[in-house]
Amino acid sequence: MNRLLSSLRDGKGFDIVLVTVPLLFLIALSGLPLIYNVVMSFQEVDMFSLGTFARPWVGFKNYIAVFSAPETWPIMRNTAVFVVCSIAGQFLLGFGLALFFTQKFPGASYIRGLFLASWVMPGLVVGAIWNWILAGDFGVLNYVLKSIGIISENIFWRSDTNWSLWAVIIANIWLGTAFNMILLAVGLAGIPRDLYEAAELDGANGWQRFWTITLPMMRATIGAVISLGLIFTLQQFDLFAAITSGGPANSSNVAQYWAWEQSFRQYDFAKGSTISVVMIAVVMIASVIYVRSTRHEVRG
């Protein structure tokens, strides 16, 4: 006991304790459920076999069932549209705002802080706010679009199959822009000022400085922001639950919401976990890209 205490005191072994605690935490709460989920996707699971781990092994039957279901490809397409459009919207708006706030003007940092309000809000609250904004008959968005003459008829964002996915995308862009802005602003702040001065003396105008200095210097940050965006967007669940519930007729359903629906609404746990495993594969690829892009930091 004494030896243990003294080894803690002089630092030897303390580093191992520091690593062990989060490692155990990760294994218990992330690693094991992940493995359990993967195993489940190769088993036959029903309400009666839920309590046991020794279930009939069915090989790739669940995967075949998922990929032959008629709703699979529309939902995968929705997922792709949701991810690409959300990330594009969040990134472009976030980068624009980040560049805007690098300009020195009174209150710049204060106003930038206000933008974070959207990010700290729970997804369900954001969903509720956007439900009002997007409401077909009394929503503000319809009122604005009609007032400036872009639409002539009310759009029923949440119940029109042509628009339901876009209703969630718009809300998700609003939710994620601030996070993109902050990360990109940090990246911008890390570019040495004298590089811009040297480029200016070398004859570069503002546009050229952006393309030849800012963008290449931001490569690592942009890679990280987009990979994180991919991960967060694939995790986005609350907004679907709050705004469209994946409907109508699966028109706004995406893989992550579908997996939950299968497991906890249809109680088809095998199918739900199979969809999750497919998503794990996609997120893993994104994570690898993220880790690699942060490793290749280019700094003088």
Binding site: D194, L195, A198, L201, N205, V298
Partner: peptide
């Protein structure tokens, strides 16, 4: 007159080489 139109070259203390 903005720096890019002055046709002067500067060597910075930090060198300010483009790292990329």
């Amino acid at each position: 007159v903005p720096p890019r139109k002055r046709d002067v070259a500067m060597v910075f203390q930090s060198y300010a080489l483009y790292p990329h």
